[in-house]
């Protein structure tokens, strides 16, 4: 199965800004059943692109634009082939829990057991866990995680605009609503609490015509992966209550959203900006030709603005000493 993915991000600033610096994590990963066949990024204004692989193995592109500009547009285009899918057993065996030990886990697994920025335990999370009887996993890890996936899916309404990109999980927990990012963070926090190494995945989802997916077709998607010693990484999509399959295209993995935002940047100039994002995922047989491709969305990330913050500068200057 081949997919063609097109992802456009456009920042419009209230007044000309300069010295934009941007990092991009949009390149689909090439591993397991997923193979990257082509990838390109264009920016406007044009800029020299640099790349590196971060410590999670994600391809990161970065660039800077010195001269004044009122708009910054990033367009990426990828072709991905998804070959075979791992066939998962109905359940893992109950002894799987014993296998979470130093022989089967490496550093990265252990790192993914620690709390991270968006997966901090909290009173609201504890209450949720108690309410749903999730203190201890029920049955073998795979069964327990599937149950967790379904529980979260059922407990929350999908609604964009309630939470923001930097919202802690408490926000969604108290509202009982949220988006893919919130659900994934909540599930990660609980799974890690069970001792299951879990990571956040940012990527794209192919929505079949008439699909019942709750997530929007025109945005990036997020889910998580949990490590099972005898099965490897298994993807769970609590937004759509599925184990991930050939429709999930993985772009970047990390401890949580903070490690993998599609764009992260700073610039010098006034704070106000407007962000528009468009995403399309199509089987390549159907070439992408959208007339009205862009739409204005809520800001997804907030580039750090203007140097003119005397109070903050003052406090931060005082703090640095050993």
């Amino acid at each position: 199965m081949f997919y063609s993915i097109r992802h456009i991000t456009r920042f419009r600033y209230a007044a000309p800004v300069h010295e934009s610096v941007m990092e991009i994590r949009m390149q689909p990963r090439s591993e397991g059943p997923q193979a990257l066949r082509s990838f390109q990024i264009n920016t406007n204004p044009r800029a020299q692109l640099y790349a590196y692989t971060d410590h999670f193995g994600n391809a990161v592109y970065h660039f800077n634009v010195l001269r004044a500009h009122e708009e910054l547009r990033i367009e990426s285009q990828a072709v991905v082939e998804i070959t075979r899918q791992q066939v998962l057993p109905e359940a893992a065996d109950i002894l799987e829990w014993e296998r979470y030990n130093g022989y089967n886990l490496n550093h990265d697994h252990f790192d993914l057991l620690e709390q991270s920025k968006f997966t901090q335990p909290s009173a609201a999370l504890t209450a949720f866990i108690r309410e749903k009887g999730l203190e201890k996993p029920d049955g073998d890890p795979l069964t327990a995680l599937k149950h967790l996936n379904a529980t979260i899916n059922e407990a929350f309404d999908y609604e964009s605009g309630v939470t923001e990109v930097h919202s802690p999980i408490d926000h969604a927990l108290s509202e009982k609503r949220g988006v893919c990012q919130d659900f994934s963070h909540i599930m990660i926090a609980i799974a890690r609490g069970w001792g299951v190494p879990s990571r956040y995945v940012s990527g794209y989802l192919y929505h079949r015509p008439h699909s019942k997916d709750r997530s929007g077709a025109d945005a990036t998607h997020a889910w998580l992966e949990c490590y099972l010693p005898s099965l490897g990484w298994v993807g769970f999509d609590p937004t759509n209550n599925v184990v991930t399959g050939e429709r999930h295209i993985r772009a970047a993995v990390g401890r949580d959203y903070a490690d993998v935002p599609p764009t992260r940047g700073t610039y010098k100039g006034p704070n106000e900006h407007e962000l528009a994002i468009a995403v399309s995922v199509e089987p390549t047989q159907a070439p992408v030709r959208h007339e009205d491709f862009l739409r204005v969305a809520r800001p997804m990330s907030s580039p750090t603005p203007t140097p003119s913050m005397p109070e903050r500068l003052y406090h931060q200057q005082q703090q640095q000493q050993q």
Binding site: E19, V21, E23, Y50, Y52, H62, N64, R264, G265, T266, S302, T304, P307, M309, R312, L313, Q316, Q317, Q320
Partner: peptide, 18 residues
């Protein structure tokens, strides 16, 4: 470096880490 670490840092240099 606000690009990589605390994004509210007014003391750092964006892009320094790269």
């Amino acid at each position: 470096d606000p690009l990589i670490f605390r994004e509210d840092s007014a003391l750092g240099v964006s892009g320094l880490f790269n």
